[in-house]
């Protein structure tokens, strides 16, 4: 009765395609398990072994991991929002309204994006505070602290650029404040704000620039720095605990 499925399974397992995906059997020894983690592109992101103290939540409160989780949530929900949002002064506000009232699950999507963005600013700040209070910025982790500070700035910039996109009164005047701050740069203030915002006031160019920065420029930069950030954690002796 089970002969045929068994034979089919064996045939699949012996096939060239299967063996090119899975080059060895189930790793049942400690060494092979380590090797399986090392050589797998997805699994190698996580350390092969986690020290017992690293599992203690009060050491880190998982704030870095939560920040990354929220970044992933924001990437996913943000990409979905992009399907219905036009970065033009005529359509932006109406698109957000439609997102809340017309698009199926659109309001949930937008609110997830909004709250995850607020949450990420909070968790990044708490992560930073934790690192500071536990002295985790000290050598050999000082380089990673610098990367972390850059990531904090990127988080703030992502929040700021995303703030303008609904193109409502709140967004417009909040970013107008930023325009005037840029214009207060000594000597070249007017040129700086003109260059950053693409005009003498907030207009279509500013909206488009902020949109491109928000959905491509800053996330790509943040992803690049995050890869370095996580890699350095491993190289500097793993997560939490004494060295």
């Amino acid at each position: 009765m089970l002969d045929l499925p068994t034979q089919a399974w064996e045939w699949v397992r012996r096939s060239y395609v299967w063996r090119s995906f899975f080059r060895h059997g189930y790793p049942d020894s400690r060494k092979n398990q380590s090797l399986a983690v090392f050589t797998n592109v997805f699994l190698h992101l996580h350390p092969v072994k986690v020290r017992r103290h690293a599992l203690a939540i009060p050491y880190t409160w998982c704030m870095g991991g939560l920040s990354f989780f929220l970044f992933l949530v924001l990437t996913l929900t943000g990409t979905l929002l992009m399907f219905y949002y036009h970065p033009t002064t005529d359509l932006a506000y109406a698109d957000i309204k439609d997102m809340e009232t017309v698009v199926v699950f659109g309001q949930l999507l937008r609110n997830m994006h909004r709250w995850a963005a607020h949450g990420m600013v909070i968790t990044v700040f708490l992560h930073m505070a934790r690192v500071f209070y536990t002295g985790s910025y000290k050598p050999p982790r000082e380089f990673n602290w610098v990367v972390g500070v850059l990531l904090f700035f990127l988080t703030i910039l992502l929040s700021y650029t995303g703030y303008l996109l609904p193109w409502d009164q709140l967004a417009f005047w909040a970013v107008t404040v930023g325009y005037n701050i840029a214009a207060a740069t000594p000597f070249i203030g007017n040129e700086v704000s003109y260059l950053l915002f693409g005009g003498f006031e907030l207009g279509p160019n500013a909206l488009l620039r902020f949109y491109v920065l928000h959905v491509v420029g800053l996330p790509v930069l943040a992803g690049f720095l995050m890869a370095i950030h996580f890699w350095r954690i491993r190289k500097d002796g793993g997560i939490s605990g004494p060295l």
């Binding site: 003109y194 260059l195 693409g198 005009g199 003498f200 006031e201 207009g203 279509p204 160019n205």
Partner: peptide, 9 residues
């Protein structure tokens, strides 16, 4: 640097 100004300017 935007050369073609729209709106104010």
């Amino acid at each position: 640097h935007v050369n073609k100004i729209v709106g104010l300017g």
